[in-house]
Simulated scan of single mutants.
Amino acid sequence: MRISVEDLEVALSGRTVVSGVHIVAEEGEIAGLIGPNGSGKSTVLRTVYRHLRPQAGRVLVGGTDVRTLTAVESARRVAALPQERGTDFELSVHEVVAMGRTPYKRAFSGEDRTDTDTVAAALSRVGMSGAGRRRFSALSGGERQRVLLARALAQDPQVLVLDEPTNHLDVRHQVELLTLLRDQRRTTLLALHDLNAAASVCDRLHVLHRGAVVASGAPREVLTPELLAEVFGVRAAVVEHPLTGDPLIAFDHRGAVEAAAV
């Protein structure tokens, strides 16, 4: 299902934080939002999963404005893993993941075999099989992250919206998560701070800077030394990854920011 963000403008506390934003994720495509802190990445994602209402513009999911959908219709189309996550659930891991089945349940209806199988499959996909009886509140940060991703997968959405999904994950689980996203080929819109991860997993990148999109395209087209200097204020070389052939950014950690073309 295609996502299209058209001429989006959002204000928070009376201040415009994103303006004129156009973003696309084609069906089955992974589109990444990258940019410095405060550039508007999370704000854009929040409009996609209806946490924020824009002042102007619209978000289309499968050609339908998300603001015209009911809560249930929206939840069946879009599942989100936001940055602001409740982490004090006094529930079991199974119960947290089963919350993803809510859009498919009638009020007060119990869990059926489809729900149970879906929850088990989602936990397996994030490497948390066998953890269903553990207390969510007792998990590590990385384990909680994977359980919340399992909840989004259990929702069986057509679109995933993920805000910094690799936060708190160790290297192995970062790689496994990115592999999962690539393999499922579900339309996905995600924000990432790790530019090398973005280059590896994303089919398309949108670069935000000061609330506007300043570049869009394939990672190889977008991630240039000039853009990295202008937007991120860093000196870097972009080379070919020796194992995957993806763009690989080598940052100059000794170079002063002032030396970059900002």
Rank of each mutant, 00 (worst) to 15 (best):
A56G: 11
D65K: 02
V66L: 04
T68K: 14
L69N: 02
T70N: 10
V72Y: 06
A75I: 00
R76H: 06
R77L: 14
R77N: 05
A79D: 04
R85A: 15
E90N: 12
L91E: 10
S92M: 11
S92R: 13
V93E: 11
H94C: 08
H94F: 15
E95V: 09
V97L: 05
V97P: 12
Y104P: 00
A107M: 13
A107H: 03
F108T: 06
S109F: 08
G110M: 05
T114D: 15
D115H: 07
D117Y: 07
A120G: 11
L123Y: 00
L123G: 05
S124G: 13
S124K: 09
R125V: 03
R125P: 02
G127D: 09
G127E: 05
M128Q: 06
S129E: 14
S129I: 05
G130A: 05
G132H: 01
R133Q: 14
R134K: 14
A138H: 11
L139T: 00
Q145H: 11
L148C: 12
L149P: 04
R151V: 08
A152S: 15
A154F: 01
D156T: 14
P157F: 08
P157Q: 02
V159E: 02
V159G: 01
P165C: 13
L169T: 09
L169G: 07
H173Q: 07
Q174I: 10
Q174T: 13
L178K: 00
T179D: 15
R182D: 03
Q184T: 13
Q184A: 11
R186S: 09
A191C: 10
L195Y: 06
N196E: 06
